[in-house]
Design a protein around this nucleic acid. Sequence first.
DNA 1: GGGAAAATTGGTAGCGCTACCATAGATGGG
DNA 2: CCCATCTATGGTAGCGCTACCAATTTTCCC
Lengths: 342, 342
Amino acid sequence: MTKPRSRRGGGRPTIADVARKAGVGAITVSRALREPGRVSEDLRRQIQAAVDELGYIPDPNARALASARAEVFGVLVPSLTNNVFAEVVRGIYDSLSDSPFRIQMGNTHYSGLEEERLLQLFASQRPAALIVAGIDQTPLSRKLLETAGCPVVQVMETGPDPVDMLVGFSHFDGGRTATEHLIEKGYRRIGFIGARMDPRSQRRLAGYRAAMQAAGLYDPRLVTTTPLLSSVTLGRELLRDALAKMPTLDGVFCNNDDIALGVLFECHRAAIAVPKTIGIVGFNDLDMMQSAFPSVTSIRTHRYEIGRRAVAMALAAIAGQRPQQRIVDLGFELRRRESTTR
Amino acid sequence: MTKPRSRRGGGRPTIADVARKAGVGAITVSRALREPGRVSEDLRRQIQAAVDELGYIPDPNARALASARAEVFGVLVPSLTNNVFAEVVRGIYDSLSDSPFRIQMGNTHYSGLEEERLLQLFASQRPAALIVAGIDQTPLSRKLLETAGCPVVQVMETGPDPVDMLVGFSHFDGGRTATEHLIEKGYRRIGFIGARMDPRSQRRLAGYRAAMQAAGLYDPRLVTTTPLLSSVTLGRELLRDALAKMPTLDGVFCNNDDIALGVLFECHRAAIAVPKTIGIVGFNDLDMMQSAFPSVTSIRTHRYEIGRRAVAMALAAIAGQRPQQRIVDLGFELRRRESTTR
DNA sequence: GGGAAAATTGGTAGCGCTACCATAGATGGG
DNA sequence: CCCATCTATGGTAGCGCTACCAATTTTCCC
């Protein structure tokens, strides 16, 4: 009976303080904040005044504990520095910045095992939604997603059988379109150069292969890959490797723009004329591709928009309106530039 | 007396389940998990077995509520896509991946107001530590940091008066070193080109100015800036602007590597010889600078290491060992390359 | 070997919030 | 005008965990 008041909480106002000041019950304050429509105009105003005066901020932990549901979006990406995912993440952050939802991000480092570990961790927090990159989850990961009990959005790809919702585009089609463009421009000995052959890269390679085979141009020696992480420097090395294997190479489809830039630089350094001697196509269309000299043809993808759309779909699902379209294909565009203009 | 068991929590095991299975008190389980040293070997083993068998994962929300302290690092950066901050963030994530700490990231979009808003939000969650970019907080932000009641690490800069701890390097010295290098190489009409003139960019500019003035070379018309966000494309435009103002320009110190790359491409396009006619120095030394043609001189900064060090210092502080060195200067290195070799 | 100190374990009482149910007043149809 | 239905508000009882303190056992010192 001695200590009347919070010994632990550092004196921050609680919902009870607001309720007392506004002359209402605590539960009414809670409602006024979460479902304003269910509280009369009068009380709502009174409560808002008390909130403002006290500087009350609800404790998300207490809220999560009591409601068995955290206002958190779990986001899982394979890399934080890869510009492509950084843009998706930026879209997610921007879309969520004015909502009560926080973001819990995880970096899987392209590892299925790490993805399982993080998913387990995330699911244990009962997130409001999960956004994960790719559709190639391990069986355990997929089960974790299915039983997470919240909307799930897979991003960056398209496909027939998402766990729940899916936003992205076809890497296969992207790879094929890029390759067909080179063929159309008259290139014949067209190589594929790729680092870090994750599932999306594999699909781009498959698209390349399909286009080459359809044109009767495919030769496995035209493909040069490595498990190393993409970088501009690696692009240079891979072009050297490719040329060593196949000196008559007259075009390259690069798995991404970093590689493409490295290839371009290596061409400069080796005095190989672009687009005359070798044509170059990149993937993702980072800003620098339009400014490079010569400017580089690339497949434009809509990373930021994918992040935004994923959040929008998750938010709708949380609000109970499951979208009529569970699978959204945002497509891509071929940006024709100097590196393939001859 | 009817409903005996959790109606809300979806049946996940709780600490009480573990305690029952291990035949001990709940509090002992709690201790075994958090302070294993205070529980006897025997019980610890028993409890671990029960935890494993049940697949128990502690609820971070309940933990945070009960202990009035969340196992969360708040991280505030001005941009998610800027490669520089992405690397710092990667260092933070990597350093924290095996700890119980989660990360709550915020994107301030280079806005002091947004920083205040996020800090307010973060502080209300009683984080275990806060990591913020820069030392130029608004007075309110600074007060929020000071009263957050947790270790605070400011990163990316150095300076005399951190809120708590500080890891970074001197942008002023970096700018001066870059400029002195150009002077030393015989360049005289050296321009400064910069976008998004945040406080760090301003300090690099100040370093540039100091070097130019010391050499008697400073002319305000040599400085070209814009409030727009950095990009390769913008680098091209800014070089054009700079040349229009000052056609005799023979060198440029670029505020960052994106700009430097744009400048390089514009030189190619305009058939300006690099390094002969114009020398170029960038800032940050992204991977692509060493691979560019010609390769580009840049100031190498240790972004990833800054992230790691910030976490290490915060972790030490949380453990009660305040580091003897509150201010850590990780320095930078000038990487001399072809773009200034003549 | 006795008593103090240290180590080990447990019980109780919340942390701040919301789900659930109850209650009182408002509305409305016959 | 009465009773059923709906609306607005409140009380109670936890959510799962840990701080605090008490109780017990072990260790240690002279």
